[in-house]
Amino acid sequence: MMNKRALMTSVLAGAVVAAAGSAAQAAERDQIRIVGSSTVYPFASYVAEEFGATTGHPTPVIESTGSGGGMKIFCEGDGPDTVDITNASRRMKPSEFERCADNGVTDITEIVIGADGIVIAQTTANAAMNLSREQLTLAVAAEVPKNGKLVDNPYENWNEIDSSLPDREITVYGPPSTSGTRDAFEELVMEAATEEMDGYDEPYTTVRNDGPYVDSGENDNLIVQKIQNDTEALGIFGYSFLEENTDVIEAVTIDGVEPTPEAISAEEYPVSRSLFFYTKNSHFDHVAGMEGYVSLFLSEQMIGGQGLLKGQGLIPLPQKMREGVRARFERRGELELADLK
């Protein structure tokens, strides 16, 4: 009898909860919803945490979906059920802007929060290494020019590319094609190098998949661990991961420039990029605290020259640019398709 009653109770409880669930409806929110880049995620969640701890608002929810994934969700539509902000480690693409516009997301403000360098690193056990963007491209491109035409990449050792490079097998652990870091690497290293090089008719960004370049997932920590175990290998990841692990890994200089915060913000270091987020301006009136969150993010305390995000690995923008960004946010400067081309 005991068992029977227990069973009946659980059946009843199940029915009640199921009914309550289906009745739940989304209303105007007091919790900000953010998606987007895994590179911006640590900074955004730091600000979100500070925002939740120091104001009465709930902490914004931030999903790390990658820049492309974030744009996809962001552009799904406008309204209380949709996300408010997407983070990106690259600019919005014109195609993404058009998709947004098709789905009714027209009033968007673009905000630059700072810069991030992409570092090519190895363990400190190795001798210091310098690579040019051309050499790096020849190591990871699917096809390279040989005797005037493009052939499948034959290089397996660095010294086959240039005799001045060490006799080490080419192994590069890097981000997969869904990652903003990968987009930036392709653009800033491969595209930039192949524009200048003989043998490529047009900018070339196809990465080889015959072994030497290893897709290592969105998790930069994993890449840091891999290059510690595989001491021959190089790894590609964001600057903040270098900063946190200087005792075990070091950066390869690119075109002779070391990725220091100064070199990255001055754009001397060639493989650096700006970090962004995009806001849906129609949401400012409907989502409590959204304005406060963005203002906190853009404050000197956060993205300033000595701001808290600097400690998290963000490379601050120059003073002038920070003021420009704040001014654009104040007037909710609307993003135009022409800006992105």
């Binding site: 909860v17 309550a20 669930g21 739940a24 939740g52 902490t59 929810v61 931030i62 999903e63 790390s64």
Partner: peptide
């Protein structure tokens, strides 16, 4: 969307 930065303790099943 549950693999996300959500530090607040949920107060109800819709949070």
């Amino acid at each position: 969307g549950m693999v996300a930065y959500i530090p607040d303790v949920p107060g109800s099943v819709t949070d």
